[in-house]
Design a protein around this nucleic acid. Structure first.
Lengths: 219, 219
DNA sequence: ATAAACCAAATTGGATCCAATATTCAATAT
DNA sequence: ATATTGAATATTGGATCCAATTTGGTTTAT
């Protein structure tokens, strides 16, 4: 029997649909910092009961994307300048390791895809999509790594500062510089120079952090 | 009015009680790898309904301590030798940074407490409590750090390999060596030598990893 | 007028009930 | 005997209902 099979047990549950949607809305800034998440309202939006909503919210809290208080509910989490800096320092520690590990594992195919995404990012003139394209490029390179826990950490860290990253891209020459730096990282990957790719990734993150903190209220 | 006050809104919810209890049981190895977590059974144990249990389980999954499959339920998560190695490498990256940050922030009081815990660890002859005393010592030093996200990561990483750490302590000369290394780390902290403390912490974790992998099935 | 007391609406936490799926085991066919 | 079908049981996912707590406005006393 020849039949294209799929894992039917992997179909999404209501709670995971709500979780994904809320996560996306939070990191993209559609829900802004401090905004309360009303279980009833969200349940109505998704045509479900509050049960899956509550599960989604508790998972978001475990990820640090919302803060909840007993009997008061959940609000979108925000970061102080110090906390933002710490997250960027965490990224500075972890992401170069991911790239270092990933470079020798990158296929031609993947490098081609990364080059496309790099070009798409530099070519875009719509600030609304810069955030997505930026993340898309980095994730493509990272996806070659087999360090699943490092990746988990990096994904979560990026989630927590995604809004700041987007802000950084649109300010001063953030976008232009990111484009240049992406190209450098990509070249190092193509040359198989893991050390250089790691160093450039490190500089990329630290540069974004500095430029961000410079524009932040009395950091 | 003089009255010892407490934040009454911080009283534990049912789901957090269940969460804490399950987490403890898992990392201490009372629930072993692969063992299923039946919602009904746990709810009965805690005299609650399945709702708080489900919330606890979904939080545990977000922490990587259990794995769940839709309509099949949750089982205690386990780690392959490769995954164990990766977690130890993650700890090797993060925990030295925590110590480096913590050393200049350590009060006399805290150092005294750490010295007590270090002594208690070395003095203990009951293998059942080695795990707790070991973690207690490290957490005491780490608690001086103000890097809350680094601490989050470290706590979670340690949670995931706590069972292996305990195994490592009881095998060969694990306990004896840990005692020596703890003393070295403590001394560096007392001398205010953050770099040395970081380096020794690094060696401590890598040493534990090596000794662990050497005794693991065909790593 | 102001502040404490209190009541009603809104909201969350938890219990109970029902639906969807998985598992087990007996019945049947080959 | 073995493999397949099918029904009974167990288990999870979600909906609805009730209880506990917060919130905001209103009343009342000073």
């Amino acid at each position: 029997m020849k039949l294209k099979s799929m894992d039917i047990s992997a179909t999404a549950s209501a709670s995971s649909i709500v979780f994904d949607a809320l996560r996306k809305a939070i990191i993209e800034g559609q829900l802004e910092e401090g905004e309360p998440l009303r279980q009833d309202e969200i349940a109505r939006l998704f045509n479900t009961s509050r049960i899956p909503v509550r599960e989604a919210i508790s998972r978001l809290e475990e990820q640090g994307l919302v803060k909840t208080q007993r009997y008061k509910g959940a609000v979108v989490a925000g970061l102080s300048p110090q906390e933002t800096e710490e997250i960027f320092d965490l990224r500075t520690l972890v992401e170069p390791e991911i790239i270092r590990n990933a470079v020798p594992l990158m296929s031609k195919e993947l490098l081609r895809k990364a080059r496309d995404k790099c070009a798409a990012f530099s070519a875009s003139s719509d600030p609304m999509e810069w955030g997505d394209l930026n993340r898309d490029f980095h994730e493509t390179l990272y996806s070659a790594s087999d360090l699943k826990f490092f990746l988990e950490i990096a994904h979560n860290a990026i989630d927590r500062v995604e809004r700041q990253i987007r802000a950084q891209l649109v300010m001063s020459n953030g976008m232009e510089r990111a484009g240049r730096e992406h190209f450098g990282i990509l070249e190092a990957c193509e040359q198989g120079d893991a050390e250089l790719a790691a160093k450039l990734t490190r500089d990329h993150i630290q540069g974004a952090k500095k430029s961000l903190l410079a524009h932040l209220p009395l950091s």
